[in-house]
Design a protein around this nucleic acid. Structure first.
Lengths: 247, 247
DNA sequence: CGCGCTGTTGAAACTTGTCAAAGTTTGTGG
DNA sequence: CCACAAACTTTGACAAGTTTCAACAGCGCG
């Protein structure tokens, strides 16, 4: 098996060269539970790394599916379009998260994945990953968990869209972002939105004007300070309270 | 090919005993692509079959996860509750569909699964299925497709909740049910709803009164005939048209 | 047979969407 | 590096869709 050769080459070649084994998003991505030797084997698989500029498509609905993608750095949105022009943003993804799981079932991607800032991604050829995961139990199990987590996340969005009012949706959205930034070592209270009001609105099932107005209201009430895309959360508990209050 | 042998054995053994190999939902469930000998091995795994009465829980949010469930016959809803009493129905499941995929990621179920009519289910111990799917490639691949399909389905619901008006949501809901009944050999035009208006509303992000009113409107307009839980679709194209029209 | 759950319908209130205008930021080309 | 255009954001007034509250009807289970 020439796997070790590949690994050797990678190590020798460059500290520059990225690899799962030295990726600081390990804990958020696939390789969390892997033993060192298993990690090496995954490394050899994840050979196709690339860089996307803001606005570029990682894949489009209808594209043939053959890989899933791990975000190494950057920020993405996924969306679905229907013929009459309506858009539904199905998610925002950041470093350490996986993209493309939707493509497995039909062997075609079913949504668009678009970089909202310059991003680095790792392509993981899917059939090879299936093969490897037959040999590495922990990889198999972890992959199943990741897919399951995606399903649970989607249920959360359904709850948000199905039962919450505009204020609650936006509060939930901000708290979710805050939490994910925190998990990546950024400030929990201050961040830049990478998406437009329209994209937030599409994700939350609201019109952009409603998003804008609700931001303004949150600001008036002292929950946040907002200036265009720059958000500062002043009162986490206030936002949390907003989410729970009914009617 | 030993297909006939397997079939023979099953027939001889028991018409009583249920088994994947003679389940008429094969094409909708897991074993679709399996070779006869593989099918036998799956059969041996799926030993725990049971029966639930209407209203009984298959599992509850928080229950430890150790199996996924295939619906052999019957009808289920899955829902998520939040502390203040709000409910979000995340899906309605019928024969041949899988339940419990949400539990993989945390090893706890994250939603409730409740039988809406007397139902038969097959429990598939998850760790054993992972083991088996390391040996049977087609099972592994098919399972991944099933999980991916669930994600895609959820995106459809997000689109529905995020971009559609009440009429469109309900039309989409009826057409989806109709299509799934058709796939199971039932009438595409006439069926009984197994869920209440409130449950439909929760799924569609509407109040029960809105659901009721919209049914009435569809009836006035000649799209359907509705009498309580009995639905007859009179004009499929009319419903399809309703879905596409914007504002 | 009656009680409770489910479904229907009406009127009023409320939330969100629509349309419009103006302000702000960003990006590009001269 | 500035100027201008395009894209994005904010805000207001009004309209539309949905929810809320309430009353009543129907069905089904014990």
């Amino acid at each position: 098996m020439p796997l070790q050769n590949v690994q050797l080459k990678v190590n020798t070649l460059a500290l520059v060269k990225t690899a799962c084994s030295n990726c600081n998003l390990r804990e958020l991505c696939l390789p969390f539970w892997l033993e060192p030797d298993e990690l090496e084997r995954l490394d050899s698989l994840v050979s196709n790394r690339s860089r996307l500029k803001r606005g570029e498509y990682l894949y489009r609905a209808g594209d043939p599916f053959d890989a899933i993608y791990a975000i190494r750095s950057g920020f993405f949105k996924t969306d679905v379009l229907i013929e009459d022009g309506r858009e539904q943003v199905t998610g925002f993804q950041m470093g350490g998260e996986l993209l493309g799981l939707d493509g497995i079932c039909t062997e075609q991607h079913t949504c668009n994945a678009i970089a909202l800032e310059d991003s680095d991604i790792c392509a993981i050829p899917f059939l090879q990953m299936e093969t490897l995961s037959r040999e590495i139990h922990s990889l198999q199990h972890h992959f199943h968990k990741v897919m399951s987590r995606e399903i649970v996340r989607d249920h959360g969005v359904m709850m948000l869209l199905g039962t919450m009012r505009a204020e609650e949706r936006l509060a939930a959205f901000l708290l979710n972002l805050s939490q994910r930034f925190t998990a990546r070592g950024y400030s929990h209270a201050e961040f830049f939105l990478r998406m437009t009001r329209e994209e937030i609105g599409s994700y939350l099932g609201l019109k952009l004007e409603t998003v804008s107005r609700t931001f303004s209201r949150f600001q008036e009430e002292g929950h946040i300070a907002v200036q265009q895309k720059h958000i500062r959360i002043l009162d986490v508990n206030g936002l949390k309270a907003l989410m729970k209050q009914r009617s």
